[in-house]
């Protein structure tokens, strides 16, 4: 059984615990064992990253070093964490001076970054470690008559040479899994655009309008729901639909993370997946299982 160190990042445990729960249950069902990383710290994405590159490398470096001490590879379920850890790994692997400096700090705790642990995002686990065939054979209650739009997330797929998750201009992992589960994956204008999440800090108005632009494009395709692979995107695409600027008089489109969508098809109980916690009731999706 493949095993990974699960790094949840700051946001998921507090803002979307259902995502964390569904990741654990679905991955365990598909043959991946997860050990929660303890004593971790924030990966430093966005904020520390902007102020000091070395500080950023130290923070993300420590997370990877922790996984190394557990003798495991890292599974990051947040897009920003995934992007950060992979970028820092790339930097530490290619810059011995930087690596030595970070290790100096880590040595005080008896940790060391040597580069033996890989960093993977949830989508990679599905494609590489579980495989489409295994997913297909594990489906017991396929969906039918369901149209879904996939939202990948910027930090999940870009920059492709470093993160190596999927084809950044034309990603397909989520779409394939949607199809395997019996639903129809729908393309829409601006599929690879950002959800607007990272902009919330500096200009919430712009962030909301970016998110709503995405919702508008998705709505034009007449879909039943949006599938995400990053909790930040999930929260953003859900939250913007409640904003004053959102289109009034239309029903909100449910947004759910990939494992929460896959769970029912694998025969997992709704409550275990935390469905009842979803802000926009995904019943339009779940009815079709």
């Amino acid at each position: 059984m493949k095993e990974f160190a699960l790094y949840t990042g700051c946001t998921t445990p507090v803002r979307l615990p259902a995502y964390e729960a569904s990741v654990k249950i679905v991955l365990e069902k598909l043959g991946i064992r997860l050990t929660l990383m303890k004593d971790a710290n924030c990966c430093g994405a966005q904020y520390v990253e902007s102020l000091s590159h070395t500080a950023f490398c130290a923070m993300s470096g420590r997370v990877i070093a922790l996984a190394e001490s557990m003798n495991l590879d890292v599974l990051a379920i947040c897009g920003a964490c995934s992007g950060s850890l992979k970028t820092v790994k790339h930097d530490l692997d290619n810059n011995p001076k930087l690596c030595a400096e970070v290790n100096e700090l880590l040595a005080e705790e008896g940790l060391k970054y040597t580069g033996t642990s890989e960093v993977k995002h949830l989508l990679q686990i599905f494609r590489e470690d579980i495989g489409y065939e295994a997913i297909k054979s594990a489906i017991v209650k396929p969906y039918s008559g369901l149209r879904l739009a996939a939202h990948y997330g910027c930090h999940v797929t870009r920059p492709p040479e470093i993160v190596k998750v999927d084809d950044a201009e034309n990603p397909t992992i989520i779409d394939r899994i949607i199809e395997l589960a019996g639903a129809t994956a729908v393309d829409y204008t601006g599929k690879t655009r950002c959800c607007g999440g990272p902009m919330l800090a500096m200009d919430a108005d712009v962030a909301t309008r970016i998110g709503l632009d995405k919702i508008k494009n998705i709505r034009e395709e007449d879909v039943d729901g949006i599938i995400t692979a990053c909790e930040f995107c999930d929260i953003q695409l859900t939250q913007v639909q409640f904003d004053d600027l959102a289109e009034q008089g239309v029903s909100k489109i449910p947004v759910i993370p990939l494992p929460q969508f896959l769970g029912p098809a694998l025969g997992i109980n709704f409550d275990k997946l935390g469905i009842y916690l979803n802000k926009i009731d995904p019943k339009t999706i779940l009815q079709k299982v």
């Binding site: 910027c154 870009r158 920059p159 200009d203």
Partner: peptide, 14 residues
């Protein structure tokens, strides 16, 4: 504040 307005979505880089 302009340099801080980049969302780091990297569509431009792509």
């Amino acid at each position: 504040d302009l340099p801080w307005l980049c969302m780091t979505c990297r569509l431009c880089e792509e």
